[in-house]
Amino acid sequence: MTAGRSLLALPMVLLLLGGAILPLAILVVISFWSVDFDAFELVPGFGLASWREVLGNPTYPYLIGKAVLTGSVTAGLTALAGYPIALSLLRVPQRWKSVALVVLMTPLYTGEIVRIYAWRLVLGTDGLVNGVLLGLHLVQVPVKVILFSPVSTILALVYDELPFMTLALWIALERLDLRLVEAARDLGARPLTAFVRVTLPMTSTGLCAGALAVFALSAGDLQTPNFLGGPTGATALASIDNFFGTAFDWPTASALALSLLFALGIVAAVASLLILRIGGGAVRTRP
């Protein structure tokens, strides 16, 4: 690439520097400041009180771990659900693929809060699931554990993020030479073996892209756990919101936000390396 072409990337580089790195740098600085709660002013300086609070109080490592777990479980479940959908989409006739894409993205056209209340209608005490269970006499009283629990939170997150995973897998599958899968089958591989030995490694980049997107979106979701998690809906994001917005304690909020970002970044990097290693030994098609 010539130097002239490289300059084309300059605006985006500047945008990234201004839009991502600069705010993070400000958070780092503020995390060492303190607050004068009488005057409601941030006091510049260098102190470790906020970091001691975030790293020393077991509440915050727990909430960060919970965010990692939520992101990981959601990414895993969307991958499990996404592969069959993406494989089905692969077989859709070419002229219908644009329609399939529109249908796939349908959940994203509604706002998050609409989806949340829709889940309440489905999973609630007077909801659809309980209506069916009661109607079939499978239960005598409405089942309450499916709403306002980790189950409802994960279910809604999987539904919300599934399009991102499916789209990434679909694009990867479109580039797969299906003759390799047929060859594996012709040589006696069972469908599951052909998937694990051929399809999975050769679509690992798509899996990695989808998993990263789903992990980041679900680990950082605030409203779904708030409205569907019930008493179990506490998140690191809600605590950060409380510190920033309610307590005006920006240093503690900054330290917690940076800790969460660091933990999510480490886990995402390690997971990406592991996923891409699946594809390390895969047969490569010629371009």
């Binding site: 709660f37 609070e53 109080n57 509440t59 727990y62 909430l63 506490a234 809600a238 510190f243 307590a247």
Partner: peptide, 16 residues
């Protein structure tokens, strides 16, 4: 309250 930040920390601990 004058110690509102302490109240917020208590609330975060309750929620978690």
């Amino acid at each position: 309250p004058p110690n509102y930040s302490a109240w917020l920390k208590v609330w975060n601990e309750v929620k978690a």
